[in-house]
């Protein structure tokens, strides 16, 4: 007859070597999967310039700028200066038609790394001031030659590692 003390001793004797090895094998299997997946994700992060899903404001900057340039208006849609701003590689000044039918002077300021500031002026007054943060560090405003159309703008942006994240050509439409 097995006594109560003997039963308790058997119940608390711990795991056998086989049980431990089997458990560790299963645990190790899942650890390997997790390490592999994490390494894959980090490689993917290094490969691509900007995680557009994590930073939706990047797409917002591109969309708003496209709208301003597509609606650029007049014989000189890119004045050389406006208020305290000057047309440079880091500042885009564009004379643009709004949905109301009136025109505004829009200034895109890329001078601060990682920050984009869009200011819209109407009759000398600021009517809109919009700031996007967490965008690629270096924006550059340039031109792109398209046959029979001199007003195309090329916007390029590189992240802090120098990877090209945005390269867009916008061309004004007829109004």
């Amino acid at each position: 007859m097995v006594t109560r003390t003997a039963r308790r001793r058997r119940a608390s004797r711990g795991f056998t070597l086989l049980e431990t090895v089997f458990t560790l094998a299963i645990f190790g299997f899942f650890i390997i999967i997790l390490v592999t997946l994490t390494a894959e994700m980090r490689g993917y992060d290094r490969r691509y310039p900007v995680n557009f899903m994590k930073h939706p404001q990047v797409s917002a900057v591109v969309s708003r700028m496209r709208k301003d340039i597509v609606d650029a208006f007049g014989a000189d849609p890119y004045p050389s200066s406006y208020a305290t701003y000057t047309q440079t590689e880091k500042t885009l000044i564009v004379y643009s038609v709004q949905s109301t039918g009136f025109t505004q002077t829009v200034v895109w300021d890329f001078r601060t790394p990682g920050v984009v500031n869009r200011k819209a002026f109407s009759v000398g007054n600021v009517v809109s001031d919009w700031v996007a943060r967490g965008v690629p560090a270096n924006f550059n405003v340039g031109t792109f030659e398209i046959p029979n159309r001199p007003y195309a703008v090329r916007i390029r942006a590189t992240d802090e590692r120098g990877k090209l994240a945005i390269d867009q050509i916008f061309q004004p439409r007829a109004h």
Binding site: E40, M41, Y48, V50, F52, I146, I166, D167, Q168, Q171
Partner: peptide, 29 residues
Amino acid sequence: VERTNRSQRASELILAYQVLSNETEVIRR
């Protein structure tokens, strides 16, 4: 895994459509 793949695919498509958009701007002229 699916989330990672979809995120990667979305980033790839954004890059690809930037180039397609640029090409469209030129070919329309």
